[in-house]
């Protein structure tokens, strides 16, 4: 189990997030960024398109991240990282170029440059920090907002469903695609370290519950991230060279009876406060469909 393999106390103590940064209390993006630094150390160079993380970086004259960070326009995260990775390699600099982009910057506005870099096989790690809406500009819906969730552009609940971005990236036949959660740092850190050893395009989709946009108490960020996984609403898995594998604790949740009821996850979040019974059913159906697709893939591989 990944959890066992990683000794928390041996992780680097260096500050990869500088105290006194601009993020809201309880911010998941800063939790995840700390784990990024712990995983890759000083070899990581980040490329950050528009979003909350860009603001944390961009309060000139100081920046809030403890890693080099290049700020770039919304649509160009993966394109910029492609050029940066090539330039560093040509100069003989040993570095891991990491795109650190929000769900809007990944699944909507940055999708074409992400697809291009994946198809070209650029040697970068792309992390989508998914807080399920455009938080920095005031909680607008993105294509990664789950069904039924309130946002400032979906007052009656999001009519759409969450776009399957990890599968869309995996369909580019890249060597590594994984999901992760800020609630499971040892899993995210192990996946980043694995990605760093692979040459080519690597994609990690990090689930990042946001207290401001999801309307929950700032102290609950970690708990809600774990509940997403324990209820099966978010699934931890990885595709290595196209082969799918469920990771703990999701590997024990293929059987729906092992999952906590979805209500335990959504009742703590104000964005679902007014969800209708019909919408809740659609949300549950979306989640079931994700699991069904995983089951089908595992079966096709002969793993079930």
């Amino acid at each position: 189990m990944i959890e066992m393999a990683l000794n928390i106390k041996s992780l680097p103590k260096k500050k990869y997030v500088m105290p006194g940064h601009a993020a809201c209390p309880g911010c998941p993006e800063t939790i995840g960024f700390r784990h990024l630094g712990m995983a890759l150390g000083d070899k990581a160079v980040t490329v950050i398109p528009a979003g909350c993380s860009a603001v944390i970086q961009g309060l000139w004259p100081k920046q809030g991240w403890g890693l080099p960070a290049l700020n770039i326009v919304f649509a160009a995260g993966a394109a910029t990282a492609s050029g940066l990775a090539r330039a560093l390699e040509r100069r003989g600099v040993d570095a891991h170029v990491v795109v650190w982009a929000g769900d809007g910057g990944t699944a909507d506005i940055g999708l074409q440059s992400l697809s291009g870099a994946a198809e070209r096989g650029e040697n970068i790690i792309y992390v989508c920090v998914d807080n399920e809406a455009y938080m920095n500009t005031g909680i607008q819906r993105s294509s990664l907002t789950p069904h039924g969730a309130w946002t400032t552009t979906t007052h009656r609940g999001n009519p759409g469903t969450k776009k399957p971005i990890p599968q869309i990236v995996a369909a580019h036949r890249v060597p590594y695609v994984a999901t992760a959660s800020i609630g499971y740092p040892w899993d995210f850190i192990a996946k980043l370290r694995k990605a760093a050893k692979i040459r080519g395009f690597k994609y990690i989709h990090l689930h990042a519950p946001c207290p401001v946009g999801w309307r929950f108490d700032a102290g609950l960020t970690g708990k809600i991230a774990k509940l997403a996984v324990e209820t099966g609403a978010w699934i931890l898995y990885e595709y290595e060279n196209g082969k799918l594998k469920l990771n703990p604790p999701s590997n024990r949740l293929l059987d729906p009876s092992k999952r906590k009821p979805i209500e335990e996850y959504i009742k703590l979040q104000g964005r679902f406060r007014n969800i209708s019974p019909e919408s809740l059913e659609v949300l549950k159906r979306d989640i079931d469909r994700n699991w069904e697709e995983i089951r089908t893939a595992l079966r096709a591989q002969g793993d079930l």
Binding site: P19, H21, A22, P25, W60, P61, K62, Q63, W65, L67
Partner: peptide
């Protein structure tokens, strides 16, 4: 050059929040 170094307190003394 529009560079800013990594430093503590980019948003001030946030303990006051």
């Amino acid at each position: 050059l529009p560079l800013s170094p990594s430093e503590v307190g980019s948003a001030g003394k946030t303990g006051s929040w």
